[in-house]
């Protein structure tokens, strides 16, 4: 056959080839599975994904080990509050070994943001909207693929960080102790959720720098700022509901009066990500690309 285009492709609604021994037509149809595959291919075929994932692993494991070493007194801590606005409490060995999440959350947020803003920046998103005119399946697929990759990687990192941290601390805490598995899983889930938050903010703002700035402010600056400027009882009423502190609640074994209960923390996180995804979906559907 000398056709410029393939004779073997046929859409579900197209009639079969009229003459000759028909080659088995492969059916062309837009499917959610296909969109998921596309997002997976896109995520794994750029170097920045591999580099950021590696950086997140190093952050979780390396900082966890460092924090454990500081806590164990092997390294002298600098002056000042050790865990200001951050994760974990100075006394919870599990939380200490997972304190690398504080840095890793920023890295995974960037992974989520870039998965979206890169496509707006290059104009590639428009080629995808032409392939998927209803648009939203692209957002869901992106969120799912990023969440699965980040959560899976974070789980490995969190388990390693926990084991390394406990051996540095010599705490005697192990994965079988009550609440520990929940905290380690919680750390991985938290990072997965933050990466989806990155996807949502990226889709809302469509620009890398702006999205990253908003996420850094939300995750790092606002929690500290609120503690600093609000009257004490306001601050204790509000700050537990911030995404980062809701995440802390998931990762701490020995609860704390400044944090929500783990289940409540999970619900609050789900609420944040749900809200932002709905906003992102609305913007993606209604704004000209």
């Amino acid at each position: 056959m000398s056709s410029i285009l393939s004779d073997e492709l046929a859409a579900v609604d197209a009639p079969g080839p009229a003459d000759g021994p028909a080659p088995r037509p492969s059916v062309l149809a837009l499917t959610f599975r296909g969109i998921l595959r596309a997002e997976w291919i896109k995520l794994r075929t750029v170097r920045s994904t591999r580099m950021t994932c590696f950086a997140a692993l190093v952050a979780v494991i390396g900082l966890g080990a460092l924090a454990a070493a500081v806590s164990a007194g092997d390294i002298t801590a600098p002056e000042g509050p050790r865990h200001a606005g951050g994760f974990g409490s100075a006394t919870d060995p599990t939380a200490i070994s997972l304190s690398g999440v504080l840095l890793a959350q920023l890295i995974v947020a960037v992974i989520g943001v870039l998965a979206v803003t890169n496509e707006y920046g290059t104009g590639m998103i428009r080629a995808y909207f032409a392939a998927v005119p209803t648009r939203l399946p692209l957002l869901w697929a992106k969120a799912i693929v990023v969440a699965v990759v980040v959560t899976a990687g974070s789980l490995i990192a969190a388990v390693v960080a926990f084991l390394v941290g406990q051996s540095v601390l010599g705490s005697g805490v192990d994965l079988g102790d009550p609440g520990v598995v929940r905290a380690v899983l919680g750390a991985a889930l938290y990072l997965g959720v933050i990466s989806v938050l990155g996807v949502a903010v990226g889709a809302l703002l469509r620009h890398t720098a702006g999205s990253v700035a908003v996420l850094f402010a939300t995750l790092l600056i606002i929690p500290q700022l609120l503690v600093a400027i609000l009257p004490g009882d306001w601050s204790t009423a509000i700050t537990p509901y911030l995404p980062s502190n809701a995440g802390s609640a998931l990762m701490t074994v020995s609860g704390s009066d400044t944090l929500l209960a783990p289940a409540a923390g999970a619900a609050v996180l789900a609420g944040w990500v749900g809200l932002l995804l709905v906003g992102a979906a609305w913007r993606m559907r209604t704004t000209d690309a």
Partner: peptide, 28 residues
């Protein structure tokens, strides 16, 4: 369609770019 030339992630290969787009619709 082709609306914008070079609407491609600069770090991705041409083939991977097309493979991803093809995947949405089941193009082999």
């Amino acid at each position: 369609s082709l609306l914008e030339a070079r609407a491609v992630h600069p770090g991705r290969s041409a083939r991977n770019h097309l493979l991803a787009l093809a995947a949405t619709t089941g193009v082999p």
